[in-house]
Design a protein around this nucleic acid. Structure first.
Lengths: 119, 119
DNA sequence: GCATTATTTCGACAATCGTCGAAACATCGG
DNA sequence: CCGATGTTTCGACGATTGTCGAAATAATGC
């Protein structure tokens, strides 16, 4: 992943609605959700929703597929993981002693929310 | 982590210089770097650098500490991990069959960059 | 082909962001 | 105290972003 791609992805996620859309799609998994469903949950006018979906799509974070009249959007997990890797890359210069800070895998499973606020 | 915090953190990272600063500090580890060093590497005028450091600081992504005349900035790893967790939370509704997409730990170590472009 | 449903494109507006020089502030050495 | 060094604050500017109604484009059923 190049820096410009990461910036684009982060900018796409740096908005209330878009972050909610993305997390909604992450939760939905590979099946995705159609535009109407998302608009309904977020109570957004269609044109506004499209604007945000396009931002996410152009950033490479979500995929678009047509199913009859509906457009199905789904999270691009490779992009998501790539972005996360980019952020945490070379943490502490790659020192293994830094694992507690850089790769708390034990905490990133389900209990991570707690540990994050304990900063 | 609340949605607003995540948006703030993502917005802070969604800029070429700030992303470079943050990754620089992630790499530097807990020792951090002083403002002057960062300005030198990025070739930024002092006032511009301060602006970006403040954005990162207000978003809670970096810490600030004074050492004599110099201000030392360091990445806040708890915040970083919290953000990552927030993004990947509840992936695929929490289905275990989704581990390949949601938590490719085997791929996030050093080779993740490759897989991310194979989307 | 025509009405219906689902979604996107267009356009215009206010609001926010990024840049950086000049001046101010903080800290140290003498 | 005073000069030097390191960093921040202030102010102004152009550029970009987010909003959403109205109209246009897809796809379907009859």
């Amino acid at each position: 992943m190049k820096a410009a791609d990461a910036v684009a992805a982060l900018a796409a996620l740096a908005h209330e609605y878009r972050l909610r859309i993305f997390r909604m799609l992450v939760e939905a998994g590979s099946e995705g959700l159609n535009a109407g469903t998302i608009a309904g949950r977020l109570k957004l006018p269609p044109s506004s929703l499209t604007f945000h979906l396009q931002q996410l799509h152009r950033a490479g974070l979500i995929t678009q597929e047509r199913n009859s009249r509906q457009l199905i959007y789904a999270a691009d997990f490779d992009a998501m993981n790539g972005l996360v890797s980019y952020l945490t890359e070379n943490c502490c210069g790659g020192a293994s002693s830094c694992s507690a800070a850089c790769a708390p895998e034990a905490a990133t499973k389900k209990t991570a929310k707690k540990s994050s606020k304990a900063a």
